[in-house]
Design a protein around this nucleic acid. Structure first.
Length: 692
RNA sequence: GCCGCUGUAGCUCAGUGGUAGAGCGCACCCUUGGUAAGGGUGAGGUCGCGGGUUCAAAUCCCGCCAGCGGCUCCA
């Protein structure tokens, strides 16, 4: 007879097997009413699941005890909403075949194969939602039943859905002993779907939902396989929560770096220039410049030396490095020089033959560099190195070009030409650990300065079962341990991911989320035993013998494009003073104060600030509004009173109540403090904030 | 690259077969105004590009280009 242990530690005994619902009822009728599912020994189940043995049981309700939305409850809800949506869609589009419909973090989708002559359109959303509302109103119970494998398979075969049949086969392969189905209502009478579950008790619990978007996917994620339509939706228990969520999505859209980039004039992309190529407008260029200045200063502190290398190199170079043969598909095709081209043309070479020659690399030419490493390898190798010179740390804001698939391009976060904050560290195997730590310290310093704490770290290790890795296993072990240690010292949570290492060495990746919740890999720190080999690099050790150095590739912020894209979203475009493209805008109250305004502006510029003067013939209210629209940190208002007193009156972006006047010298000093401290000391602190 | 959606003024968008609109921005004039929009006048568009249907196309059809949402990939 089951002994049920509840989350509070209390134990209840039952004289026969009980369903989770019955457990809830025995605790209280209100709980039973609020219950949407259960967790039995940690596994999420239906409320109707019968518990036959001793177990730890938690009843899942819409809200946790602290009144928060329960994530398990939302999972059940969204999974159930996916069923409701699928039923609605099948009513509207007969012949639509269901494939796979899981809940996600904040929404759900269903992959569906539509008949070719009846694709789903966004215009169908309204009808589907209406149909869904009707199903919800019916408040039919989600009814689970199981069939033995053979019976279940026969049933599925009879229904003729190759996708569901495939799902079932995969379930069997994964060790399932039976197939479970969920009917919304009565099996055999109402709509049903092969499904692992679990679900909320009935369709009536699906409170508020919305179909969000339409996209496509491939069966099994294989582009050569069937193309499916993926219908995204989201669901909440209450209309209020749904509306809140939709509002948040709207808000997020406003923070999107592509939207802000345009509104704040930070960057521009132009059809005539090309897809995935960023034009940094003056304001965006200023942000990048300040950031690079900061990074460069930290690099100097850490003993890096900066280098500059060209944007192209001989094809041969990239054959040596291995980039050309291995990653050809993501490179721009080689550049063949005119002489070569003319000779080939003279020989009657066809386009197809030329393409072939290029593909094989069997031609002289140049490549737009997809990586900076080969050039840096050559700098290292340009003269003999002693162990006393090591580590050699070569840094470059190096621009590289990669042929990303057109469908992948995205604002500044996925582009075809970008500048990496790249560096290569050449060191002895013994120095590897310290150097890795140094890399991570740098990342920490810069993330801290930017107030970025929402990132995760992945340590990519080799897959023990794969033979694709180059180099000595003992060295790998040491390098992997060094990566782990370095990540530990960083003091942020990290995950170890076997199989995620590059073939030439383990790596540490930094991943951040954008406002829409998409994850982007920023930087990476990678150990490399391969390139030094390929370029035959060496140093003379204390023993007088030549040794192979180890290389660390590191671009902790990935690319300036992606990083600043993420930064724009991080700050909602309101950059701190030290990064702001326009730090101060001087706004004379009227023409009468224009001369004084000019004087103040000049003083600010002289003091090294990015200051502008709004000398337009407008009222100060409008000038302030415009300054705020561009998110300028400080608005300096000057009128006759200021002129008389030698002061400036301030308005601080984001702090509309912090107002007041300061002598100009005091303001300049305060700004300098804020700039130099990267915001730790704020000029705004000098202002009286009215008690509220 | 694939699937779907979208493309109208510098920006945001309205316009479903009958000669193209609004708000903001811009220019000029009036206004000289103390912390988020003072008033007026005006300029500005081969309706993404190319083809087709039609007496007539921003609008319907086809192709292409680009953006967006996904899929796949990412040294």
């Amino acid at each position: 007879m089951p002994k049920i242990t509840l989350p509070d530690g209390s134990v209840r005994e039952y004289d026969k097997p009980v369903s989770a619902l019955e457990v809830a009822e025995s605790i209280g009728s209100r709980l039973a009413k609020a219950a949407v599912g259960a967790k039995v020994d940690g596994a999420l189940t239906d409320l109707s699941t019968v518990i036959e043995r001793d177990a730890e049981v938690a009843i899942i309700t819409e809200k946790t005890r602290d009144g928060e939305q329960d994530t398990d409850a939302l999972y059940l809800l969204r999974h159930s909403a996916a069923h409701v949506m699928a039923e609605a869609i099948q009513r509207i589009v007969p012949g639509a075949q269901l494939v796979y419909g899981p809940p996600l973090e904040d929404r759900f989708y269903y992959d569906i194969r539509f008949p070719d002559d009846r694709p789903l359109k966004e215009g169908d959303f309204e009808a589907i939602e209406k149909e869904m509302a009707a199903i919800v109103k019916d408040d039919r119970a989600f009814t689970r039943y199981e069939l033995p494998l053979d019976e279940g398979m026969t049933k599925l075969k009879g229904e003729g859905s190759k996708y569901k049949l495939d799902n079932a086969e995969r379930a069997v392969a994964a060790g399932s002993g039976a197939l479970s189905f969920y009917a919304t209502g009565e099996p055999g009478k109402n709509w049903e779907d092969l499904c692992r579950g679990p679900h909320v008790p009935s369709t009536g619990r699906v409170g508020a939902f919305k179909i969000l978007s339409l996209s496509s996917s491939y069966w099994h994620g294989d582009e050569n396989s069937d193309r499916l339509t993926r219908v995204y939706g989201t669901a909440f228990f209450s209309k209020k929560d749904l509306d809140q969520h939709l509002e948040r999505l709207e808000e997020a859209k406003k923070r999107d770096h592509r939207v802000l980039g345009k509104a704040l004039d930070l960057f521009h992309q132009d059809d005539d220039v090309g897809q995935g190529l960023i034009l940094w407008t003056p304001r965006g260029a200023q942000v990048r410049k300040q950031l690079q200045k900061f990074i460069s200063r930290e690099l100097e502190r850490q003993g890096y030396t900066e280098v500059f290398t060209p944007h192209i190199g001989k094809l041969e170079l990239y054959k040596t490095s291995g980039h050309f043969p291995y990653y050809q598909d993501s490179q721009f095709p080689p550049i063949v020089d005119r002489e070569n081209l003319n000779r080939l043309a003279g020989d009657g070479c066809s386009c197809a033959q030329l393409a072939n020659l290029m593909g094989e690399g069997d031609i002289n030419g140049f490549l737009l560099k997809p990586m900076n490493c080969p050039h840096h390898m050559k700098i290292y190798g340009s003269r003999p190195r002693s162990y006393r010179d090591l580590p050699v740390r070569l840094a470059e804001f190096g621009t590289v070009y990669r042929w990303e698939q057109s469908g992948e391009l995205n604002g500044m976060t996925r582009v075809r030409g970008f500048t990496q904050d790249d560096a290569h560290l050449f060191c002895t195997p013994e120095q590897l650990g310290d150097e890795l730590q140094g890399c991570l310290e740098l990342v920490k310093i810069i993330f801290d300065a930017l107030g970025m704490d929402d990132y995760r770290v992945r340590v990519g290790l080799r897959d023990p079962d794969s033979g694709k890795y180059v180099g000595d296993p003992a060295k790998w072990d040491a390098a992997e341990q060094a990566c782990r240690d370095a990540a530990k010292t960083l003091g942020v949570p990290f995950s170890e991911e076997p199989g995620e290492a590059a073939f030439y060495g383990p790596k540490i990746d930094f991943v951040v989320k954008d406002v829409i919740g998409r994850e982007w890999q920023l930087g990476t720190v990678q150990c490399d035993y391969n390139l030094p080999e390929r370029f035959d690099l060496s140093y003379i050790g204390a023993d007088g013998q030549a040794h192979r150095p180890v290389v660390i590739h590191r671009a902790p912020f990935g690319s300036m494009e992606r990083f600043i894209g993420v930064l724009i979203e991080h700050f909602s475009g309101a950059f701190p003073l030290w990064l702001a493209p326009e730090q101060v805008r001087v706004m004379p109250i009227s023409e009468k104060s224009l001369d004084y305004g000019r004087k103040i502006h000049e003083q600010l510029v002289e003091a090294g600030f990015r200051a502008t003067l709004d000398d337009s013939d407008e009222r100060v209210q409008l000038k302030i509004r415009r300054g705020a629209e561009m998110k300028v940190p400080y608005s300096v208002i000057v009128g006759p009173k200021d002129e008389e007193a030698g002061t400036v009156s301030l308005r601080v972006f984001g702090l509309p109540d912090a107002q007041g006047s300061l002598p100009i010298a005091a303001f300049v000093e305060a700004l300098q403090n804020e700039d130099a401290s990267r915001g730790k000391k704020r000029a705004a602190d000098l202002l009286a904030t009215p008690a509220s």
